[in-house]
Amino acid sequence: MTTIAAPMASRPRRAPLSPPLVYGAAAIAFLLVLWFAATAIPGVVSNKVLPSPFDVVERFATLAADTFSGSTLFGHAAASLTRWLIGVTVAVGLGVPLGVLLAWLPPLRPAVTPVFELFRYIPPFAWVPIAVLWYGASTTTQAMIVFIAAFPACVINTQLGVAQVDSILLRAAKTLGAGAATTLSRVVLPVAAPAIFTGIRIAFSNGWMALVGAELVVGKQGLGFLISQGQINDSVSTILVGMITIGALGALIDVVLQRVQRLLLPWKSATTRPVA
């Protein structure tokens, strides 16, 4: 006997944010079909403005096999990834220890605040002209932009992660006779690790985004360079292949990092919100 046929206005708010995939897949498929139709029906969109999906796939194959503007697609991707890796490695290597220091030794915070506030609102990209002046069209220039984009997220999230460690834990460690070094390595860092890792993930993604911008302006190789060459040659399909590759690599980096995070840090993630 089921009554109360009245409409249930309560919404299933507890449903996970990730939706049933069919809807999204259908929406994306619809857009692809629309894209294809627009390019297939003559007179709607010129191929010069928007090539058909098949042209893009074909262009992808060509770029993967043949040299374009100095190297194949993979060569460009490898160049970008190398610069990115250099930049983010330095950012993590300096940013995480600095974040720990700032959280662990509070008087240091006001000392770095002026610099941090000064640089915080200057977009990484605004550093490109001066980086070019300093280091020319070199890997250092690109890596520096990556570093500038990645560094703050490392510092801030590490600091938040370490600062939020419950002082009761610290006192407990002290009463158990742990010194500063032991407390830091055995208590603080494991608790802060999820926040730190989240910071690293944001840093990696910020660095990747900024690198593309830097490569648009300077350099002779890289995915950003590839799309800027596509622009110069009026080849929209090249640009699209470049954009898709950049997006796919960016997404891949994040997926891999999420996996690694789950593997390395299976315990519950920190409660603080990550800061981008």
């Binding site: 009554t3 109360i4 249930m8 206005a9």
Partner: peptide, 25 residues
Amino acid sequence: MMIAAGLEAPSTGQILVDGKPAGPA
């Protein structure tokens, strides 16, 4: 209580108010 309020649907059974099926919340 959520069922009585009309915020949740019962799997079986019903809520009557003054002998009539209660509407939505």
